[in-house]
Computed example of a mutant assay.
Amino acid sequence: MKVLIFTECLAGGVCSVISDQIQYLSAEDKQLQFDLLYSKKDETPKDLAQRFPDVGLIEIPYERGERFFLVKVFCYLLFRVKTKNYSVIHLHSSFSGFLGRIAFGLSAHKLCYTPHCFAFLSEEFSPLKQKVFYWIEKRLSLIGCIVACGGSEAKLAKGFSTKVRVHTISNGVNFSDLTSSVTSSQADIISVGRICKQKGFDDFKALYALASHQYSLVWLGGPKPDGIDYVSGWLSREALFQYYSSARLYVSTAHWEGMPVAPIEAQYFGLPVVAIRTHGVVDCVVDGETGYLCDSIEELYQRCQQLLSDTSEYQRLSHNAKAHIRKHFSLANYAGLLSLYRQIAADTLALSEQTLS
């Protein structure tokens, strides 16, 4: 069985999820072959060949931001990608889902689509654009199937139509990669992500103003702004794990998410998560059990104070966080994805034989 994965967002959590999925699926089924079609971004890792061994890497020869980028990529998909070579085509991210479902529409039976957060949730767009994106998602939702990366995303997808085929396969993480020998504290409170509106960096700045006189706070990500010393810039995975293993709390100020990987990884290391209540985050943080979900930065700050001053409550949530992640977010989640791929491949083969006969 040969699978094509297409994403224009090969960076951050999406890159980690795709890497983990391929690793798990390849180990479970030696007959699987993967091609990864991607568009490079500034944040795209430089070591793709090491991250994706035995995977056919196909870089789209256009850069996001160049003139007519959308049209160029669409034409590339339509005329250069031979869909007949694949049993399954998996589209990752809203952009890829939009272009892929149109360009590969004649192969709809092969398509599955994981949004990793629908574009219409983005507060970077005007209300009018959000409505347009919602309308597009609704109209395209009957092409192929939607593979939601968490419960919030599945609920939104099911809201498009009762005819939409939705499979919920929650993100998993590779526990064997999550190791660090560092024990000395590097920060009390950490957060991970790109510096952008989606991840709520301005809200983190507000939290820093409230809490920095008591605690050390570090934002792990980039691009690093000039003159802000509590932002680390982009880190290696090893350096990130060192922060996970030595910090005390993880905070999430994100405004919208699909199923974020960083809070899952942080809880694996025993960090309670104090987060703004939002899509995606509510699927991996159990309020009052593995962390706290808050409705304002002020409440988030108060919860941080509470946890960092109450040893028994901290230990309870830390213990629960470790157990929760190990139980619900292992790579075994992707067994459902393997079953889905096999079903799509079988349907593709049956349709092909029917056409020939």
Results as ranks from 00 to 15, higher is better:
3 V>L: 01
8 E>H: 11
9 C>F: 12
13 G>R: 04
15 C>F: 02
18 I>R: 02
22 I>C: 09
26 S>W: 05
27 A>G: 09
30 K>S: 08
32 L>A: 12
33 Q>H: 12
36 L>Y: 09
39 S>C: 10
39 S>M: 13
40 K>N: 09
45 P>K: 08
46 K>A: 15
49 A>C: 01
59 E>C: 08
66 E>N: 11
75 C>N: 07
76 Y>H: 06
82 K>H: 13
86 Y>P: 00
87 S>Q: 10
87 S>F: 06
87 S>G: 00
92 H>Y: 05
93 S>E: 09
103 A>V: 04
109 H>G: 09
111 L>K: 06
113 Y>Q: 14
116 H>D: 12
117 C>Y: 05
123 E>A: 14
124 E>Q: 12
124 E>L: 10
127 P>W: 05
132 V>N: 01
136 I>A: 15
136 I>H: 01
137 E>H: 01
145 C>T: 12
150 G>V: 11
152 S>E: 02
157 A>K: 12
161 S>W: 10
162 T>D: 11
167 H>K: 04
168 T>G: 06
172 G>N: 10
173 V>Y: 03
180 S>C: 06
182 V>P: 01
185 S>G: 05
186 Q>F: 10
192 V>I: 15
194 R>V: 02
196 C>F: 07
198 Q>V: 12
201 F>N: 02
206 A>I: 11
206 A>E: 14
209 A>N: 05
210 L>I: 11
212 S>Q: 11
212 S>W: 11
222 G>D: 01
226 D>I: 00
226 D>F: 06
234 W>S: 12
235 L>F: 01
238 E>Y: 00
240 L>H: 00
243 Y>Q: 05
244 Y>S: 06
245 S>A: 15
253 T>N: 01
255 H>G: 03
255 H>Y: 10
258 G>K: 07
265 E>S: 07
265 E>D: 14
270 G>N: 13
273 V>C: 06
278 T>D: 04
282 V>K: 13
283 D>A: 08
287 D>N: 15
294 C>K: 01
301 Y>D: 04
303 R>S: 11
303 R>Q: 15
308 L>H: 12
309 S>K: 02
322 K>I: 14
328 H>V: 00
330 S>F: 05
334 Y>M: 02
343 Q>G: 10
346 A>W: 12
347 D>Y: 08
350 A>G: 00
354 Q>A: 15
356 L>R: 15
